[in-house]
Deep mutational scan, measured.
Amino acid sequence: VIAMPSVRKYAREKGVDIRLVQGTGKNGRVLKEDIDAFLAGGA
């Protein structure tokens, strides 16, 4: 999974398994917005 360390930390704090999140950034990078969208109700 491609993600910046700050995004990985954010996901950990929110209790999200970053491997389950679909990245929308360049080359499938997971963004902070992707974590929020995942929490809001889905992949």
Rank of each mutant, 00 (worst) to 15 (best):
R19N: 12
K32Q: 08
G15I: 04
A11K: 00
R29Y: 08
G42N: 14
R19L: 10
V21C: 06
R12G: 08
N27E: 09
D34W: 00
K26Y: 12
V1S: 08
D17A: 05
T24L: 04
R8T: 08
Q22K: 15
Y10W: 04
A43E: 13
Y10L: 04
R12N: 14
K32S: 06
A37G: 07
K32F: 10
D36V: 06
V16F: 02
L39K: 06
V30K: 03
L20S: 09
L39I: 14
G25P: 01
A11L: 01
S6M: 08
I18T: 03
R12I: 15
V16R: 00
R12L: 15
Q22E: 11
K9Q: 13
I18S: 01
Y10A: 02
P5T: 11
V30Q: 02
I35S: 00
Q22P: 13
R19V: 07
A40M: 13
F38L: 07
Y10P: 01
R29A: 14
D36Q: 05
K26T: 11
A37K: 14
R19A: 11
F38H: 09
D36R: 05
R29Q: 14
I35Y: 00
G23T: 03
I18Q: 01
K9W: 10
A40P: 05
E13K: 13
R8L: 15
M4K: 15
L39P: 04
F38S: 04
L39F: 07
T24N: 06
F38D: 03
G25Q: 02
I2A: 08
S6L: 09
F38N: 03
T24R: 06
E33H: 12
F38Y: 15
A43H: 14
E33Y: 09
L31E: 09
A40D: 11
D17I: 05
A37S: 11
Y10S: 02
V1E: 07
R29L: 11
A3N: 06
I2S: 09
V1F: 06
G15A: 07
A43K: 14
A11Q: 01
F38T: 05
D34M: 01
K9I: 10
K32L: 11
G28M: 06
V7M: 04
I2F: 05
G25N: 02
V1Q: 09
G25I: 02
D17M: 05
N27Y: 11
K9E: 15
V16N: 01
K26L: 12
A43I: 13
A3H: 07
D34S: 02
V21R: 00
V21N: 00
R29W: 10
R12A: 15
Y10G: 01
V7D: 04
R29D: 07
G41L: 14
T24F: 03
A37D: 10
G25Y: 02
G42V: 15
G15M: 08
S6T: 10
K14S: 07
P5H: 12
D34P: 00
K14Q: 11
R12H: 15
G15R: 08
E33N: 10
A43C: 07
V30N: 00
K32V: 09
A3S: 07
L20R: 12
Q22I: 14
V16L: 06
G28N: 08
V21I: 12
D36K: 05
K14W: 07
R19H: 10
V30H: 02
V21A: 03
A43R: 09
I18Y: 05
G41D: 13
S6E: 13
P5K: 15
D36H: 04
L31G: 05
G28K: 07
L31F: 08
E33S: 14
Q22L: 12
A37N: 13
L20Q: 12
A11F: 01
E13F: 10
L31H: 08
V16H: 01
A11G: 04
K14H: 12
A11V: 01
V1D: 07
K32Y: 09
G15K: 09
A3Y: 04
A11H: 01
K32D: 04
V21W: 02
D34I: 00
S6A: 13
R19F: 09
L39E: 05
D17T: 04
L20M: 13
K32E: 06
S6N: 12
I2P: 08
Q22V: 14
R8A: 09
K32G: 04
P5Q: 13
A37H: 12
R19Y: 09
G15V: 04
R12V: 15
M4N: 15
L39T: 06
V1A: 09
G23P: 08
R12Y: 15
V7H: 02
R19G: 09
L31N: 08
K14F: 07
F38M: 07
A40H: 11
V21S: 01
N27W: 11
V21G: 00
R19E: 11
V21P: 03
I2Q: 09
G23Y: 02
L39Q: 06
L31W: 05
A37W: 10
G15S: 07
P5V: 11
D34Y: 01
D17P: 06
Q22A: 12
A3L: 05
A3V: 08
I35K: 00
G23W: 02
I18L: 10
R8G: 05
L39R: 06
E33M: 12
T24Q: 04
R8W: 15
G23D: 01
V21Y: 00
R19D: 08
R19I: 07
V30S: 01
G41T: 14
G42F: 14
R12S: 14
G42W: 11
L20N: 11
G28E: 05
D34G: 01
P5G: 11
D34Q: 01
G28P: 02
V21E: 00
I35A: 00
D17G: 02
V1I: 13
L31A: 05
F38G: 03
D36C: 06
E33G: 13
A40Q: 13
E33W: 10
G41C: 08
I35Q: 00
E13I: 11
N27R: 09
V1W: 04
V1H: 08
R19S: 11
R8D: 07
K9F: 08
A40R: 14
S6V: 08
P5Y: 07
K9Y: 08
M4T: 15
